[in-house]
Design a protein around this nucleic acid. Sequence first.
DNA 1: GATGAATGAGTATTCATTCAT
DNA 2: GATGAATGAATACTCATTCAT
Lengths: 235, 235, 235, 235
Amino acid sequence: MHPGRRKRTLMTDQSVTKRTPTMTEASPRRRRKEARPAEVLEAALETFARKGFSATRMDDVAARAGIAKGTIYLYYPSKEALFEAVVREYLVENIARAEAALAHPAPTHAERLRRAVGIMGQVILDPRRAALPKLVLADGGMFPEIARFYRREVVGRGLGLLAGIVRAGIAAGEFRPVDPEAAVRLFVSPILITALWQITFSPVEEHSMPPETLLALHADLFLRGLCVSPPEGDR
Amino acid sequence: MHPGRRKRTLMTDQSVTKRTPTMTEASPRRRRKEARPAEVLEAALETFARKGFSATRMDDVAARAGIAKGTIYLYYPSKEALFEAVVREYLVENIARAEAALAHPAPTHAERLRRAVGIMGQVILDPRRAALPKLVLADGGMFPEIARFYRREVVGRGLGLLAGIVRAGIAAGEFRPVDPEAAVRLFVSPILITALWQITFSPVEEHSMPPETLLALHADLFLRGLCVSPPEGDR
Amino acid sequence: MHPGRRKRTLMTDQSVTKRTPTMTEASPRRRRKEARPAEVLEAALETFARKGFSATRMDDVAARAGIAKGTIYLYYPSKEALFEAVVREYLVENIARAEAALAHPAPTHAERLRRAVGIMGQVILDPRRAALPKLVLADGGMFPEIARFYRREVVGRGLGLLAGIVRAGIAAGEFRPVDPEAAVRLFVSPILITALWQITFSPVEEHSMPPETLLALHADLFLRGLCVSPPEGDR
Amino acid sequence: MHPGRRKRTLMTDQSVTKRTPTMTEASPRRRRKEARPAEVLEAALETFARKGFSATRMDDVAARAGIAKGTIYLYYPSKEALFEAVVREYLVENIARAEAALAHPAPTHAERLRRAVGIMGQVILDPRRAALPKLVLADGGMFPEIARFYRREVVGRGLGLLAGIVRAGIAAGEFRPVDPEAAVRLFVSPILITALWQITFSPVEEHSMPPETLLALHADLFLRGLCVSPPEGDR
DNA sequence: GATGAATGAGTATTCATTCAT
DNA sequence: GATGAATGAATACTCATTCAT
């Protein structure tokens, strides 16, 4: 973007997230210093989410984090690096949560999908986390590395996980024989759209539909469409 | 000193598309002049779509349109005005196409929805048109007027149209008694996601799933979930 | 998008001259920082005086001040604000000097006026100070606020002061009964014209009349015209 | 000012004022064409007077003259040339009027000066004409040629004329033996200041002193100061 | 480490000037 | 001759980045 800025790859830079969680953090001053990068990251997430990459000023991030502008550069060598750190940090967190949630066992495969809706909804309806897909969408074009990373680590792994459930359901005769890859894309679409919708329109919308209603209907409709025989207690 | 920037509302400014109704336009220069605003708009759409509002430079737009930078300002008084004109122009076009398509009659309400998928897919899979939702999502936060406009004129009207079909289908006993407002949101989600997906990941993806496959499965699954009795010839 | 330019009134902004009351300022950098606004102001005065508002480039001001362009904006939010600060700063200084000088007592009212010529001549013949009336003249049309301020604070107060002397002289039977308001306008005219003349023609004039000669004759002629009985030792 | 603009001397360019006043101008169309340069000049005078050179846009001049922007360039090759033509045209006119007026005979030299005040007041209180000294003061710094021209042709000739009267008055024993060069400078100062005052403060002043009052007092005071024995009928 | 004043390359916008019609 | 669309150099202002304190 800006000429003469060093362009590091997304994955190789680990120097920043130097967290020592195992150590019993003692003095408040020490604690503060240790927490700095995370505080900056959070301030950056909120600012990037609201304005996008280009329109975010380092001043804004610093002000929101309650530190001086120059201090950011102690932890992140450039605005781009900060952006990438934000995306990576919160993305990885999102993935971990979703994976953990999806791993829970359930009586039927339909039930597992139904729970997946709940879990993903919970994760993504937190405005802090919903910001991620939006950022990837908005600025991914200028950060191919981020788009690639998101595609591989978030979308790829998430869809893979879900596709495994669908595949198992088909094998068990519970689901109709559809293309699992395609089915899971359809499955996550309303969840994503709901998150993006919230972010985009909540400032300009007086009365919006509660996401829970939407996602409940989604689970019903989708499973009814997918299952060989409709689930019993269907409303 | 500095002449006040006109800050026009999104809807009221029609001054730019001053096309003369006479058909037999003669000189090439005249022809050029008439076509300018549209050429600028197209160049701007492509650049805004690729970079977002902030990262787009007027130089880029001018270069892409093959004109001098100052020429843009002959037709649009500011970068913001240009952005709004782009969104308005192509949004309105999108709406008109979609509405026309949805108006087509069909034997069953399910069939109307199925056709709607096809139509909307066609519209939105054109990268030029898919850029619009992306722009609204990416930069709507900084242009509340545009978000509002999009919410009202595109989302509102589109969902209203579809909700009418769903409502009719329910009344006819063809669809199950679901919340039509919620159902249509679910209905359009995969279509939107497919469009956004294309834009976001096609530059970084080697082998992607064909959108047609996805949308066909969507129609099947969704209608099977919605209809009282599954359509017969369902695969 | 673009943060709104603050358009402040001429009088209310005191934010720039934030001088710390502590006397023992230490580091050279600190000293530099404190002196910056005044340095910028002086460079701006010279440049505005030479070129007028419109033709002055911020680059020129910066270069003359020996700083980077952006640094100006650390202290003054816009070219207009800088201009107004210049006028206000030096105008106020002029007024203060002139008032102090006029307050001096003298044996006769004629003598007070004669001293006023000397004082005002001293003040206004400094090219740095003479620039102010010229700026008000040249750019006051585009800065009505400045014209108003100058009219009120400089012309109004100055003329009021002088009119008081004339009125006292008339009451004392020393001066003929003329309109004091009109008389003082005539009184200051040659002083102002002399200042403007210096500025305008000194670059293109080989041999000019020394202002002191002019002002001495002015005092003689004017007082002889004004006094009931001509002053004694008149040449 | 602007690099790469041709800089012609002030006097040598006569190509523009191609007026044929002796010809009986016939058709309205022909008349229009003939009058063009003068109309442009008048529009330019008003705009320059109001805004100064730099802040005047060719668009404004064209709009005020009721012609297209490009048309100005048919008569004047650049903005600078236009400015110079304006100053020259109206300056020369001013001089001619003043000289004619001053040539009138009168019983005493004091009376000739008194009439000169009236004449010059008439000339200079017309806002159109008062603009000239203002332009020279405001923009003369950037147009040394104009300053020089004004100094030589207006100030020089005007002061010379008046100095002649003063010199004659002294020789005749009517005036006291003062430096004529200095005296006439003092003589014209209030007249100039009055004109400049009108231009500068009339937009921001609610109730101003009538110039006639001022100039009448000026003539009285000045002549009383200058004459050996005060004029009789002095108020 | 932390600060924030200073920098200067970058960008939106203006406007004198040109020239095809 | 007249026009006004087009040009592009000029300029106010921004903001990521640096570095002396």
